[in-house]
Each structure stands twice: as structure tokens, then as C-alpha cells.
Amino acid sequence: MNSGRLPRPVLALLFVVPFAVIIGVWVVVKHALHVSDDALASPAGVLAAARDLTGWGILPFDVSRSLYRLAIGSVLAAAIGIPIGLLLGTSRTCVAMFAPFLRFFQSVSGIAILPLLIVWFGFTEKTIQIVILYTALVPVIFNTMTGVRTIPPVYSDALATLGGGRLHVIRSVYLPGALASIVVGLRLGIGYGWRALIAGEMLVGAGGLGFMIFDARRFHDLGQIIAGMVILGALYLVIDRLVLAPIEAATIARWGLERT
């Protein structure tokens, strides 16, 4: 697993080759096998669709719409979930009580809640927001809670003997100590929330990337569908690898904590 042995140009080539192979196979399948436009778009078709969508302003609008919803949902999930998780984590009994409860609701993804939400709030922005919030909340609370549990009690005990109240303990011991787990929880929450967002958008029809690729079916524009899919994948990669992973690494590096 020694990457130092391969020269840089070779490494760059290795990165590109699989993508090139896929596009090559794609082109061959489309043209040599004469696959119709109704079943598959060519790479050129996808690029054209992406260019058109951007030009018409649809793509930037939908992307920003989706990202905006994800951001709001994530911030709310953090603002609500972290405090709850910290509070629950202070008590061993509470953690034992709520851990299975939360794991149970993990299986009820946001999308399963959707029909009920639609009945209550209709096909609106609010419905989508609640789906994201609910989906992201569970991992955040769970990981925060269990993160607090891994802190050796000697720290909170020490602070208590020095006269620290519960709030002080939470602020000075639990929050920093659980930070690595909290960040992992946020990363999971945002990842799950992203998928719930896309599914929610497909159904609720209030704009956004999910709705865009779902709706493009009606025009049989596979170029648009595939372009949207690629953008969705790329966006998730950017959010996870370029935004969340560095935060996670920085937190662990700073606090020198080992991840559970």
C-alpha cells in the first residue's frame, strides 16, 4: 500500500483511467448498439442538457434550493440535537433508556414519515424541512449521547469536586470530550439528511434537484436525468469529502482524541 513508489504522472493517469473506461463503454453501448434516446442519453447529450439547464437558470436555482434546505435542516439538527444529546449523556440510565429507542427510529427513515407529514402540512417547503430535520436529528443525538458516555468520569468528577455545576461540566468536559463523536454524528446526519432531502423533493414537488430529475421523466429527457444524477453524486462528494471530512479530521487532530 506504498503510494510513494508510483510516480505522479502515473498516479494521475490511474485516477482518470476508470472514468475514461466508463465513458468509453457508455459511448460504445449507445452508438454501436444503437440504444435509443428514450433509453439512454449519450455523454454528449448529458453535457448538452447540463449546459442548457445551467443556461436557463434552472440548475443553479435547483442546486441552491436543495443546498439551502440541507443547510437549514443540518443547522437545526445540530442546534437541537447536540444539547439534547449532551443532557441525555450525563446520565448512564438515560443513555441505556434512549439508545434502543433512537436505534428503533433510525429504521423509520424520514421518507417513511413523509406521508403523515404530507397529511399534516401538505406538499410544502415545511414538509421537506421537517423530513431533513427528523432524519438528521437521530444520528446527532445518538452519537452525541454515546460520545459523552465514553469520557472517563474522572474529568467530570474532578470538576465537581472543584465546585463545578452541571452546566459547567457540560460546557467544559462533555462538549469538548464528545466533540469527535458529535462531528461523526453530524456527518452521518447530513449524509442521511441529503438522501432524505432528495427523496422528499421527488415527492413533494416544490423545486430542488430531486424534483428536477424526477420531473425530467415527463419530457423523456434522459440527458437531464443523468446530468442531474451526476450533479447529485458530485455534490454529495463535495459536501462529505471537502467540507465534513476535514472538519472531522481537524477536530480529532486538535483534541487528540481517538474515535470510538
Binding site: 439508545a99 452519537n143 458516555r149 465514553t150 456527518r187 470510538t260
Partner: peptide, 11 residues
């Protein structure tokens, strides 16, 4: 990705 279960604590 999945929920982390709490490791056996030494507390």
C-alpha cells in the same frame, strides 16, 4: 455509516 453503539465503558 451507521449509528455507533456505545463501547463497553470502563466506568
Amino acid at each position: 455509516g451507521e449509528l455507533q453503539t456505545s463501547p463497553a465503558t470502563a466506568a
